[in-house]
Write a protein that binds this DNA or RNA. Structure first.
Length: 841
DNA sequence: AGGCGAGGACGTCTT
DNA sequence: GTCCTCGCCT
């Protein structure tokens, strides 16, 4: 932040803060608007002819009276009904800076949307004068919908409701020339970025193996997140990469971007900041325009976003940031919790409103979460409460290993389903790291328990989708070199590296796009006959397709392009198992394009949105990372893997120490507060990770849960039957107790001495052993026993055999691995299944 | 051009 | 242990 002092100096008035005439009214009453003192007077010239902000006293008194509930406002405000007093205060405190500390499940989105509705309904601003930013497209979409419900069509006139990036693009397109771009600039995705960085690294004469482009991309992203242009990169940091060439490479990369008329994601904001800093007139224009600024998830803003907001907020003190410092979990990607902690200093006279009434979770769940998070030091402090019932306590379960964990949770879900018809859509398993998902997937497949993985590979990140989009992009915009390089030889058409390189060099030499260079080169003898021919054909195809843009429906054109380019045929000819789903994805892409007016409209969307909504069809258990779960809620939440090293993650502790630990703790807090009714924590004593089977200690977070809200549940233990001395009730039928009879009992106690013992015991024998060896000796023979028992009845299967599965139907065995089969099911697709669950067809 | 072996990563992820 | 990428070999 300090490094960007230049921007800051222009941007925000912290220095003159004291001089600002923020007359703080007594607490609990709306603030007198700050007719900006230091900043230029706000001009209303271009504004519509109704009385607009800043509010004058008469208006002020209305909201003040409304707040006290004394008298109805002159404007009918039915949308305020049903808000609790704090929410209502947050909606009505329209003047001056406001920070809404909205705890989990306290109605944050409702406040934001109602606030917008209130601004519009009271005619304080036109829809076009409200700037409302979110992080994700999903959040923006939801907000737009909900505002739409409140104010009707007016939301259509809210061009400035969107993500930081989409608003950044919109502004940048209007003023591109001022920062050395042309308005039609393209936005690079991560792939393009890496490809370009590779080139830059090579051009600088560096060994691209020693200095991977990926790492440089990470560094540059980090710098951009912090608002640092190449000249401002601290020397020490640039030193780590390529012996001090980091900043130089960054600068070279930025030059290349300009040559290509392109931006990466970071630039969308950084170039905005540069634009505002270098062109105060442009900035002033936007400052005048945005009378009200609203920011969602403020705790996730990074420095660049913060600077951008600061610049814009200078024109109007009416900035409202909503966030929860306890849910700041993106520090590793540049988010600065500090932004929210410092809000009152940044925006002097800020009013802070806490939303602490939780509408989501039961008392015990809130109590457990609150107790846990209270161990964090750097907090603004909030205490969630609910008027609802206490509900059931959060359970803590110790299990033997990750397989056992998956098994017990799977069984538990099935039991719950049987017992109380628990809808699976309301059940989620939240893991710290995605590798944990595997055990659950394996288990759920064998159980036939339907599940969905959220946050898997993104639609737009799939190879076939990127290729298809590259074709479409070049058709619309031939100057996109990176996309051109991507598909010039996909499918293979005899244009090898050498030919592509020649085109590339000609383009660079003449400073023209590769497409144009290609057009020139085919007129010469430079390329071998075959390459020349196929390049000529390809260019002709692109010209032809481009000719169709105006006359043909864009979806039909897309189909035509995929067809004529041979791209579809390439996958049809591919015999790999994924080829079919790739073709499906291509169809899905075309289907999705129907939602857009034109090819250009679609492409603009795609460059900013990295995903499409997953169709939430059918009843399924959700499996996702804790990060992915933010903002969601479920009746029942399982929180497995609470072990030291995994959660809190060792790397987080190593790299960020105390701050890292606190972020992990916030992650735990986010996890717990996703649960409405039931939360179940578990930890394994042994976990397989990277092929190693390692003993593990319970996470410190387990012990930080307040006893009053926690119950230790009895778990099925291969080595001990169950924890003793605990009357947990969630044992179930299933595996015969007898198989564990001979196993040594494991004594576990939740109360401190017992846990200490348990922990000591594990500590004494830090075993690292290979499960394969283990099976041969003693140890978890039971596991082996189970596998053998269930599979011994039939001989193992061979590849190519037809089998049936009670849930998945008929399929063909494509791979055999011990007693685990990989089966390509006719209906259900490819699954891994234990052989005892199938029969020969 | 395709296939296979070596080598590296293997924490969370949005735009 | 397993997945992915890269480069070299066929």
């Amino acid at each position: 932040m300090a490094q960007s002092g230049k921007h800051l100096a222009n941007a925000a008035p912290p220095e003159d803060a004291d001089e600002l005439p923020f007359d703080l009214p007594p607490a609990g009453r709306p603030q007198v608007p700050a007719e900006s003192a230091g900043s230029p007077p706000v001009s209303n010239d271009d504004d519509p002819p109704f009385d607009l902000p800043p509010a004058h006293p008469a208006r002020q008194s209305i909201s003040a009276r409304a707040l006290q509930g004394a008298a109805p406002a002159t404007t009918p405000t039915p949308y305020l009904d049903g808000l609790n007093p704090e929410q209502r205060a947050a909606v009505e405190a329209l003047d001056g800076p406001v920070l809404v500390l909205a705890g989990a499940g306290t109605g944050k989105t409702r406040v934001l949307t109602t606030r917008i509705a209130h601004i519009l309904a009271t005619h304080r601003a036109f829809p076009g004068q409200v700037l409302s930013v979110t992080f994700t497209n999903k959040a923006a979409r939801e907000m737009k919908e909900r505002v739409g419900l409140l104010v009707g069509g007016a939301v259509e006139g809210m061009p400035w409701l969107g993500t930081f990036h989409s608003i950044g693009v919109k502004i940048l397109r209007r003023h591109a020339e001022l920062v050395g771009l042309k308005s039609g600039f393209t936005i690079l995705d991560t792939d393009d970025q890496i490809r370009l960085l590779k080139q830059v690294i090579e051009v600088e004469g560096l060994d691209k193996d020693r200095w991977p482009a990926r790492q440089l991309a990470g560094l540059i992203d980090g710098w951009k997140n912090r608002g640092l242009v190449p000249e401002k990169v601290p020397a020490g940091e640039a030193f780590g990469f390529a012996a001090g060439k980091g900043a130089q490479l960054y600068a070279a990369y930025q030059r290349r971007l300009k040559e290509l008329n392109a931006c990466d994601f970071g630039d969308l904001l950084l170039e905005n900041i540069r634009l505002f800093a270098d062109h105060p007139d442009v900035l002033a224009d936007y400052q005048r325009r945005f009378r009200y600024i609203l920011v969602d998830e403020y705790q996730d803003t990074n420095v660049a976003q913060y600077l951008w907001l600061r610049l814009l907020a200078q024109g109007s003190p009416n900035i409202c940031c909503v966030g929860d410092d306890d849910q700041s979990i993106y520090g590793w990607r540049g988010a600065e919790v500090d932004n929210i902690l410092r809000f009152e200093k940044d925006f002097p006279g800020a009013r802070v409103i806490r939303l602490e009434r939780n509408y989501r979770s039961t008392g015990h769940i809130l109590g457990a979460a609150a107790g846990l998070i209270s161990a964090n030091q750097g907090r603004l402090g909030k205490t969630l409460f609910t008027d609802g019932e206490h509900g059931t306590k959060v359970t803590v379960t110790a299990v033997w290993d990750d397989e056992e964990e998956a098994r017990s949770i799977g069984d538990d879900i099935e039991a719950m389903q049987k017992r109380s018809n628990q809808p699976l859509n309301e059940v989620a398993i939240l893991v710290r790291a995605s590798f944990q998902m595997r055990a659950f997937e394996d288990r759920f497949i064998t159980l036939g328990l339907p599940y969905r993985v959220i946050g898997g590979p993104r639609f737009y990140e799939r190879q076939e989708i990127k290729d298809a989009i590259a074709y479409l992009e070049i058709t619309a915009n031939p100057a996109n070199d990176l996309k051109f390089e991507r598909v010039v030889n996909v499918p293979k058409r005899g244009l090898g590296d050498t030919s592509v390189k020649r085109v590339h060099e000609l383009g660079r030499a003449r400073s023209i796009p590769m497409y144009q260079a290609a057009q020139l080169i085919v007129e010469t003898e430079e390329l071998p006959g075959k390459a020349r021919k196929s390049l000529t054909d390809l260019l002709a195809s692109f010209e032809r397709w481009r000719g169709h843009i105006r006359h043909m429906k864009h979806t039909e054109l897309a189909e035509l392009i995929l067809d004529e380019s041979g791209y579809t045929a390439m996958w049809q000819a591919d015999k790999s198992p994924q080829a079919q789903s790739r073709l499906e994805n291509l169809k899905e892409l075309v289907r999705f394009m129907h939602e857009f007016e034109s090819l250009e409209g679609f492409l603009e969307h795609v460059s900013l949105v990295m995903d499409v909504d997953q169709a939430g069809d059918g009843q399924r258990v959700s499996l996702m990372t804790l990060h992915g779960a933010k903002g969601l809620e479920f009746e029942v939440v399982y929180l497995p893997g609470w072990e030291e090293g995994l959660f809190p993650h060792q790397r987080s502790l190593d790299e960020s120490g105390q701050a890292g630990l606190e972020e992990e703790r916030r992650l735990a807090y986010v996890g717990l507060t996703r649960a409405k009714r039931i939360a179940k924590v578990s930890f394994a004593q042994n976990r397989r990770n990277r092929g190693l089977y390692q003993s593990a200690l319970p996470s410190r977070f387990v012990d930080e849960l307040p006893e009053a809200h926690v119950e230790v549940a009895e778990a099925k233990m291969p080595f001990g039957g169950a924890y003793q001395n605990f009357g947990g009730t969630f044992g179930r039928a299933g595996y015969g107790r007898s198989r564990f009879d001979e196993a040594e009992p494991f004594e576990g106690h939740y109360d401190t001495p017992g846990w200490q013992r348990a922990q000591e015991r594990t500590r004494e024998q830090p075993t690292k052993w290979n499960p394969a060896d283990q099976r041969k000796k003693r140890g978890p023979q039971t596991i082996e026993g189970e596998l053998v028992a269930s599979s011994s009845e039939q001989a193992s299967y061979k590849r190519g055999e037809r089998v049936t599965h009670q849930k998945f139907g008929t399929g063909t065995v494509t791979d055999v691995d011990g007693n685990k089969l990989t089966i390509e099911f006719d209906e259900a697709g490819r699954k891994r299944v234990v052989d005892s669950f199938v029969d020969r067809a």
